[in-house]
């Protein structure tokens, strides 16, 4: 009992150490890549593979989030005669929290899964060894372009999700629930600040990096065989998912503190 607990602890620490080294090497590699224009094409290829095909999924996610919020919040607000302020509620929730987080989770599934599966298969079929055998650093060649692509794209994908969330909310509120359009936008514009939007988008950089790092790491260290690749994908998704939520919480604390030092908090309703 004590023995297994001890062994597990050692395992966890060793793993954390390996992951930190992986992250460190990726950071250094990323900086070098930024200075070498000849490697931009690798990043560009990944951006196409990762970003372009994620746009529809992320947009659908955003739209549904906006619509569901409208449907659920309407009755509460209408009961108080405040239904015209539905816009603030929806839009602030979408832009600040739900858009970024749900888009990131969607990406963890869609992009993270693909990254882990691809690198895992490359690992199992010795393609990563092949990269090493030719004197190329696999982190620089395989991981860095993927991390940079995720870093650069996630904020944009979040903007897409936000946009669709806002439109979805508008669609249900104004077209279906018959709220006055001018009032809806008026309250939204007063309630949602540039700050809220920026917080949501800035989170995207972090979420993107976390998804890519965890997924690539799991792919690089996956066990032999089809089962190994499958396990790695699951672990990568769960890891990314938890990290996104935890990171989001930390972000909420930090941004609130920053906001409170510079501005006074105003009531939304």
């Amino acid at each position: 009992m004590l023995h297994t607990t001890g062994a597990k602890t050692v395992d966890v620490i060793a793993n954390a150490g390996r992951f930190s080294r992986f992250v460190g090497r990726t950071c250094v590699g990323s900086m070098i890549t930024c200075l070498q224009p000849k490697t931009y094409s690798l990043v560009w290829t990944q951006m196409n593979a990762i970003g372009v095909r994620s746009v529809p999924v992320v947009m659908v996610t955003g739209a549904f989030v906006g619509m569901v919020l409208a449907v659920n919040a309407y009755d509460q607000l209408a009961g108080m005669g405040l239904e015209e302020r539905l816009g603030v509620l929806i839009n602030i929730a979408v832009v600040k929290e739900l858009g970024p987080v749900l888009a990131a989770i969607m990406l963890a599934g869609r992009v993270g899964g693909a990254l882990t599966a691809e690198l895992g298969t490359m690992n199992v079929t010795q393609q990563i060894s092949a990269v090493r055998s030719m004197g190329t650093d696999p982190i620089k060649y395989l991981v860095v372009p993927r991390v940079l692509a995720c870093l650069l794209l996630t904020p944009f994908l979040i903007i897409y999700a936000d946009l669709m969330g806002i439109l979805g909310g508008y669609f249900v509120s104004v077209i279906q629930l018959d709220i006055n359009s001018a009032a809806y936008w008026q309250y939204s514009a007063n309630g949602v600040e540039l700050w809220d939007l920026s917080v949501g988008v800035v989170k995207g950089f972090f979420f993107g990096v976390v998804i890519a790092l965890i997924s690539c790491y799991k792919g690089f260290n996956c066990r032999e065989g089809a089962q190994g690749v499958g396990e790695a994908c699951t672990e990568a998704f769960v890891g990314s998912f938890i990290s996104i939520l935890a990171l989001n919480f930390i972000f909420a604390l930090i941004t609130k503190a920053i906001y409170a030092t510079f501005w006074t908090t105003q009531s939304l309703l």
Binding site: Q126, A130, S133
Partner: peptide, 17 residues
Amino acid sequence: APIRVQYGFLFQGGALF
């Protein structure tokens, strides 16, 4: 890296990308 560049290595499974 500079040492490996001097080698050619054929993997048992090919290991093509």
